[in-house]
Design a protein around this nucleic acid. Sequence first.
DNA 1: AAGGGCTCATGACAAAAGTCATGGCGTTAC
DNA 2: GTAACGCCATGACTTTTGTCATGAGCCCTT
Lengths: 201, 201
Amino acid sequence: MIRVLIADDEELIRTAVVALLDLEDDITVIAQADNGDDAMALAAAHDPDVVLLDLEMPPTDGIYTAERILGAHPRAKAVLVTRHARPGVLKRALASGIAGFVPKSTPVSALATVIRDIAAGRRYVDPDIAATALAADRCPLTPRELDVLRMTRQNAPIQHIARTLHLAEGTVRNYLSTAMTKLDAPSRHAAADIAWENGWV
Amino acid sequence: MIRVLIADDEELIRTAVVALLDLEDDITVIAQADNGDDAMALAAAHDPDVVLLDLEMPPTDGIYTAERILGAHPRAKAVLVTRHARPGVLKRALASGIAGFVPKSTPVSALATVIRDIAAGRRYVDPDIAATALAADRCPLTPRELDVLRMTRQNAPIQHIARTLHLAEGTVRNYLSTAMTKLDAPSRHAAADIAWENGWV
DNA sequence: AAGGGCTCATGACAAAAGTCATGGCGTTAC
DNA sequence: GTAACGCCATGACTTTTGTCATGAGCCCTT
């Protein structure tokens, strides 16, 4: 029997998936959570074979949660479920030792199959996501450029970014400018959006 | 028997909900779609009692789809399912004759109950969403201010906004400025975000 | 009919964002 | 060992954004 832990902040999807997975003879959902912190605690308490995590989950995201759980329970396998498949995120996820990566556009029936594969020690990455990730150019931005884009996404004015990163305002403007050029974006906000789409920030 | 049509672009959630609703004795899912256009066509073909629509659905949103379906099938009832409950959206939805409004944080079991209520001619609005909507101040922005904020959300530069709306650039800046003041936002992007959060754009 | 209040619209001015040329510093390549 | 390269950092300059004062037109109230 494959013992599964599910964490997803949307009740509707989580309860539905739990109910359907429980119908499978060889899969049992032993615990569920609606946030990453509870998921970690429940993993410690129940020692699941497979943890199914939503990538977009407040307050800590799915990759971070997975890293923590896998660190404490090396025997467990992690599967990430995501709405938007951002290429860069897949790389970060696989680097963290995550065994499976599926989009929410997967039917539940396929999900059960994936869970069985993962439990058997195999890995599974949705073909579409894999293709996108491979086709995607790797990040052309420097660490500093990523820093300023990350803050730009929260609508921070340049003055604030400069103070936080201990830089001159001109320097911040310069990083934004080079990032905008590299990404062919007409404004820093557009550049930040592009970087996010690609999973670079 | 309550005949239900479901439209949601996320396979995972849609197939799961379909499977679970079908387990109910008095509910049957007669058709499903992953976009608004197909949903309209299927509604015409199957004449459902209740249509369950995701609010966030490309290319046309759930409210628009619901309006079209209700226009063609006045006997049908519509239920909107949403991830983020933006107050203003609820008002628009109810004005369009939508009978139910539930967040994705609803368990599937509750969803079946809501569908029965709706089919019986009652209305249902999630209490949390209703409370937020009632507490929310009504939109302080003028139509023109909404126009420029809407375009700002797509990262359009002021020049482009001005040309599209046939206004002088100074006028556009002025609308943005008043909107920023009203919403107490430090930049037009922040203002646009606030307006979106509230469902005003 | 007059006045108050609102939205729409504009241009002049101030502030922020974006561009450019430049130089230091550490790695790698020859 | 030094030349070439990429990243970090800056200040001076240009362009875009945001603010302010102002006025025309409309609808409602008085």
